[in-house]
Design a binder for these strands. Structure first.
Lengths: 357, 357
DNA sequence: CTGAAAGCGCTTACAG
DNA sequence: CTGAAAGCGCTTACAG
């Protein structure tokens, strides 16, 4: 019984008799033996860890439920299916880091890969002309893009069909008689925000609705500010609002006359929707009597206000788990194709109703 | 110029001439050379990583701003001060994991330490009779406790003075004329919640106030439920409320007669305070006219409702950074003493006012 | 200050 | 199926 036999047994590889293997595993678990991850990594060249970097300011990040849900889903997959190994507790770890800007994020990927600290990374908040794509490709660092079907170059993606979801939302509102819709979008340079903006424009145009769309930064301040301007009719098509900008979706909006505020607003996250609701109340605008509100992404936050917010619920955790599965395959040199998650579901609550007459 | 010289130069150790060192560093940075973390770890026995495990359900965790703020603070320290090294990008990594229960958490510590995946861990949400303490001690795994001055055994702690903070809050409310106070606490088995409960009891008793205190689980549901019962006078001392329990603080409460609801409620997190505000509105209880509300822990959430919530602001990020500094020292065998963070500050907003006459 | 060498604890071809 | 050996890429005493 040599080191080699032990190694084979522990890794579930052929080359040891069943009896020997059993004995080894028995002794190992009795002694609580665990292989040194460092020695293992050095010898087989794998780190046993994936990386996740988020580049958002701590202030808005801390009140954004999305990422914890995502991490939770990733974790389920990483620690759940120990799979073939003969030894338990041999899970893939997650290196998690917050950074201040793309430059720091890219530097981190370089470092991690050069030091072989990770076997792959998850890329979130994909941006239009995202510098990370080329860096990751050039490094040969395995990477999965989460949340955007476009702009990922040759990188595999786990994404949700925002266009279909937008059609659902707009169809729902149109069915309630709404003819003037507004959208408070997320950060314009993010692909997911841009795609939703384009979907909003095309879907509403097809339905012959009048719309306006402003971009914000997911903070409650921006959500409140945008709502105030929308309701007071100071947002005109083409107008640049301090703190918000009219997005360059490439598709022409039909625009709302300043005198006619929207009767429904779709927000790109729940925090802004909450802030929007607060502003509506402040201005004496009844929700849902005079204004319907839809939040994109459901969380416990949506249910703690009155009226509770109608929201689009995505299964973020399952997207994270899927991304982890894909990255596992990619990290050992396998092929992975894009994965489309099931479409989001509209959770109807009290913040939406028939359009005012 | 041998491997040894390179190693010395890269580590900023003596044993190389200045000229050689410069040349080596120059070449290294030119080539983008980075040491293999695995080889390094194997040879010097250090992992170059710390671990953080959170054992809370994903649903409430995702809307709890505390942890992202904490991680952000930890991160600032871990990636910020590269310190003595000659080579950049040689930061301590953070392994971050969510688990379902204490058993899984403990198993993770055993695995991490046996595999030498981490050099130390941060312990959060310390519980009364916390099993992790003995495990970590027996393993010899360096660990810093964050958030509780008690129950940590021999482990160093980074903590905030909740008792002083509670005195501030109660004094503030008493100064506004409030005589009947309630507290909606956190999970009773957490030390930080227990200590606040005891502080609430002793401070209010000293001030001759009548009080009642119920425990909840930080979710908006519990926050709403507790508030409803408090306002409707169905919470009596000693009563066990479904979803909430009267805490065993060891200190006798003076209790509120069922007919007299509290005029002020202190909540153990901002989410429950928000839910409490919503319930008050629903019941037609004016805030702050008839009821004052204080949230323990400030975040963007407190400012997106009307009236905005008066809240106790702790510098969570700085506590995280301090914990990381301490763990750094501990991980290399140094001595670390407990660290008391500056006291929290009461952020006065619209949800508090004079007691009703 | 510099060079040659052992060792960290694994994995994996390579002979028996 | 089993055993002896090389090698992963560093760090660190140990001689020169």
């Amino acid at each position: 019984m040599t080191k080699a036999a032990v190694s084979f047994a522990l890794n579930g590889q052929p080359g040891v008799s069943v009896a020997t293997r059993e004995r080894i595993l028995g002794i190992a678990s009795e002694l609580g033996f665990q292989r040194s991850s460092a020695a293992r990594a050095l010898s087989d060249g794998r780190a046993g860890a994936f990386g996740l970097v988020i580049d958002r300011p701590a202030r808005t990040l801390s009140v954004e439920p999305y990422f914890m849900q995502l991490i939770s889903g990733i974790q389920d997959e990483l620690s759940g299916s120990s799979g073939d190994a003969g030894l338990a507790g041999d899970h893939t770890a997650l290196l998690f880091t917050l950074v201040q800007d793309t430059k720091a994020e890219i530097e981190l990927y370089r470092d991690w890969w050069a030091q072989r600290r990770v076997d792959g990374v998850f890329l979130v908040d994909l941006q239009v002309r995202d510098r990370r794509i080329a860096v990751v490709r050039d490094l040969g660092l395995p990477a999965i893009v989460i949340g955007s079907p476009q702009g990922s170059g040759s990188l595999p993606t786990v994404w949700q069909n925002d266009k279909a979801a937008m059609a659902t939302v707009v169809g729902y509102l149109a069915g309630l008689g709404h003819r003037r819709l507004a959208r408070v979008g997320g950060i314009a340079r993010y692909w997911h925000s841009k795609l939703r903006g384009e979907a909003f424009a095309s879907v509403t145009r097809a339905a012959g609705l009048r719309t306006v769309s402003v971009d914000a930064d997911y903070s409650s301040e921006h959500g409140a500010d945008a709502t105030r301007r929308l309701l007071q009719g100071t947002v005109l098509p083409g107008t640049v609002v301090p703190g918000t900008v009219v997005p360059g979706t490439g598709l022409p909006g039909t625009g709302l006359p300043g005198a006619e505020p929207p009767t429904a607003i779709v927000y790109d996250n729940d925090l802004m929707a909450l802030a929007g609701l607060a502003v509506a109340k402040q201005l004496g605008v009844d929700v849902p009597g005079e204004l319907s509100i839809v939040a994109w992404d459901d969380s416990a936050l949506c249910e703690l206000v009155h009226p509770p917010l109608t929201a689009l619920r995505r299964d973020i955790g399952s997207a994270g788990a899927q991304a982890a599965r894909s990255l596992r395959v990619l990290a050992v040199g396998g092929e992975v194709s894009d994965f489309e998650e099931p479409p989001p579901v509209l959770e109807e609550r009290g913040s939406t109703g028939f359009a005012p007459v």
